[in-house]
C-alpha cells in the first residue's frame, strides 16, 4: 500500500493572532507553528494502515522552509519519506493552484491513497482532498471517520453525515480521502523515532523551478478582520404567557438552541 499524506503547517491553536497592517495576512512574529490538527489524524490513519497492510507512507507539505519541521515530526512518528514543496509565497496561491502544484509532483508516483486533513485550521478551505481527486482522477470521500482496506482495489470508509448519522461506503482505489479529527489517537514521536528521523529521505523541491503553468490564483484574500463581539439586551414585554412565548420564539428561531 503506497500512501501519501498532505500536511500543512499552521499557527498553533493557542497562538495569539494579530492581523498585519495590510489587513491581508497575520503577523507571524511570536507565533508558534504546528501541524494542522486534522492532518495529524490523517497521518495516524496512514501509519495504522501501513502497520496493518505493509507499504510505505510519504508525507508532503507545501510551504516555506519552516514547514520542514512538520515533515520531520511526521518522519519521527513513522512516515518513511518526505517531500517539501518549497515556496515562500505559497500563501498567495489559492487552493486550486496549490493543488495543481502538488499534483505535478504526485501524478507519477502512483499512490493508492492520498490522505489529507478535513480542512486547515488557518484558511479553512476544506477543498484540497476533493480537488486532488478531480485532478488525479481518483475516487473521493470527505469527512472520513474510519477506514478499512477490503482488498487491493477497495477501501471501505465511514463518513459523518448531518445529525449524528454515519454512512459506510466502498471506494475503488486509488482514492483521495479527507480525515475528520478524532477518529484515532495520534501517536507521540518516540525518542527512537526522533533519532531515526535524520536517516530518512526528505526531498526539497523548489516550486519556482518546476516552471508550472496554470497555477496563477483566481481568488484572493481581500481583507482579514477579527469578528466584532457584540452584546445586545432585549426586553420582552407583556403578560407572563406573552413573555414565555416571546422567549421561546427567540430561543428557537434566533439563538437556535431549542
Amino acid at each position: 500500500m503506497k500512501i501519501c499524506v498532505l500536511i500543512k503547517q499552521v499557527p498553533d491553536t493557542d497562538s495569539v493572532i494579530k492581523i498585519s497592517n495590510d489587513q491581508k495576512s497575520i503577523e507571524m512574529e511570536g507565533i508558534t507553528l504546528a501541524t494542522n490538527e486534522s492532518d495529524s489524524y490523517a497521518l495516524e490513519e496512514a501509519l495504522l494502515l501501513k502497520e496493518d497492510q505493509g507499504g510505505e507512507v510519504t508525507v508532503l507539505s507545501l510551504g516555506g522552509e519552516s514547514c520542514q519541521q512538520v515533515l520531520k515530526d511526521a518522519l519521527a512518528k513513522g512516515a518513511d519519506k518526505a517531500i517539501h514543496l518549497d515556496d515562500d509565497d505559497y500563501k498567495d496561491l489559492d487552493i486550486l493552484s496549490a493543488a495543481k502544484v502538488m499534483v505535478n509532483v504526485l501524478k507519477d508516483k502512483e499512490f493508492d491513497i492520498i490522505f489529507s486533513g478535513l480542512q486547515s485550521d488557518d484558511i479553512g478551505n476544506a477543498q484540497l482532498g476533493l480537488i486532488m481527486a478531480e485532478l488525479l482522477d481518483t475516487s473521493h470521500a470527505s469527512l472520513v471517520m474510519g477506514t478499512e482496506i477490503l482488498d487491493e482495489k477497495t477501501i471501505k470508509v465511514k463518513q459523518e453525515l448531518e445529525g449524528g448519522w454515519f454512512q459506510w461506503s466502498e471506494l475503488d482505489l486509488p482514492a483521495s480521502i479527507t480525515i475528520q479529527s478524532g477518529l484515532n489517537k495520534p501517536r507521540y514521536a518516540s525518542l527512537r523515532g526522533i533519532m531515526m528521523m535524520k536517516r530518512k529521505p526528505l526531498e526539497s523541491i523548489k516550486v519556482s523551478e518546476l516552471n508550472l503553468e496554470n497555477t496563477s490564483s483566481k481568488s484572493f484574500v481581500h481583507k482579514l478582520y477579527i469578528p466584532q463581539k457584540t452584546k445586545e439586551t432585549v426586553f420582552i414585554q407583556g403578560s407572563a404567557d406573552q413573555v414565555v412565548d416571546g422567549l421561546i420564539e427567540k430561543l428557537t428561531n434566533e439563538i437556535k438552541v431549542l
Binding site: K72, D73, Y188, A189, S190, L191, I194, K198
Partner: peptide, 14 residues
C-alpha cells in the same frame, strides 16, 4: 541539536 529540540517538544506534548 535538532533531535534534542524535537525530543523536548515531544516530551512536553506528552
Amino acid at each position: 541539536s535538532e533531535e534534542n529540540k524535537m525530543f523536548l517538544d515531544a516530551v512536553k506534548e506528552f
